[in-house]
Design a protein around this nucleic acid. Structure first.
Lengths: 196, 196
DNA sequence: ACCTGAACACCGTTCAAGT
DNA sequence: ACCTGAACACCGTTCAAGT
């Protein structure tokens, strides 16, 4: 006999997101999550096949959130401003929602599923801006440098790894500025003149 | 009545390290760990106050391992080679022991305990080399740039975030090279002449 | 002083039974 | 078609009892 559902995948993901944002993915229990959507734990298995698949769905949603923030930030202003805005938006998100940020960038049993990593938009936007910034050569390496710096900084900040004091905001801006300057500045000599 | 101990904190940490290296910290169960040191799970509480404290001890040990590797790598060769060696050693460790690397750089309930983060040697060595490389100004920011890039690269590599193909090794070397060049290259104009 | 079995309060997950 | 209580095999942790 058909029944009126008391919950839905969307509601489950939304509540899971809220609970994870508050206490981290590790602390998410299916009993608490089920209660949050007005149901008992076993019912969740009618909508998701496992706890892990719920986490994956939340990560996917967060990834899209972060991506749209980065895209919004990238749009405005001149080239250098746009590039910096993408990086700043990522760091800001990591500061505002450390648990959600960690969820997106953790391999959570990601051996099999290589995670269609942000798959698309912000990466494409970054490549477009970066190509205009540094020319077509070494854009892939350049993007990896910029993204690695931004992610590494956000993660170390998150785990309180910057213990020597100083102005952490200033350090981020310093790093960002130097990275962009290094990318624009040309390489080991070769095609250095192409850009000046 | 005194008894002959069947295990020790050292043995527990060593076996925990071995098990975590194989399957990750998340999968470490006290029953399995206890069996590995020839004891039952409750006995572990005679040596450590909780599972979390065992993880902390392992992280501490791994941190020292990594530090000594970095120090060894830093010693040889000219300035630039030493600086690159510190970064390369970190990335190599992350590739060889991804689970152990993640353990060290995860905040594992680190709200209260700010983690005496690598506390000392490799950081001091990095500062010394970096000061010789770029002069005394902005060394803290410079170190943060270098460390954030290295850590971020290692973490993204670990979570299979570099999906666009290309030569990942080359991208790391590219980034490392540009970062060092950017640091030596001087800032927004000001004390740029001091170094050339 | 250290180890143990038994118990406690939890987990995620399965499944037969309800509507 | 969805929800539920009961059960299963696990957790980390506590504690009284053993030696």
């Amino acid at each position: 006999m058909p029944t009126v559902p008391k919950t839905s995948p969307e509601a489950i993901v939304e509540q899971a997101r809220r609970l994870i944002a508050r206490s981290g993915a590790e602390a998410l229990s299916l009993q608490v999550l089920a209660a949050a959507v007005g149901v008992k734990a076993p019912s969740l298995y009618k909508h998701f096949e496992s706890r892990a698949s719920i986490l994956r769905a939340v990560a996917e949603k967060v990834r899209r959130d972060l991506a749209s923030r980065q895209l919004g930030a990238a749009a405005k202003g001149p080239l250098e401003v746009g590039l910096k805005a993408i990086a700043r938006a990522q760091r800001e998100y990591a500061r505002e929602e450390p648990h959600l940020y960690a969820l997106v960038f953790s391999p959570g049993d990601a051996e099999a599923a290589p995670v269609d990593h942000q798959g698309s938009q912000p990466l494409e936007a970054l490549f477009a801006l970066l190509t205009r910034w540094m020319g077509p050569a070494h854009v892939l390496e350049g993007a990896r440098l910029l993204v690695a710096f931004t992610h590494g900084f956000a993660m170390m900040e998150r785990s309180h790894a910057f213990q020597l004091g100083g102005d952490v905001d200033a350090a981020f801006e310093f790093g960002l500025d130097r990275v962009l300057r290094a990318l624009r500045g040309g390489g080991s000599g070769r095609r250095a003149k192409a850009r000046r």
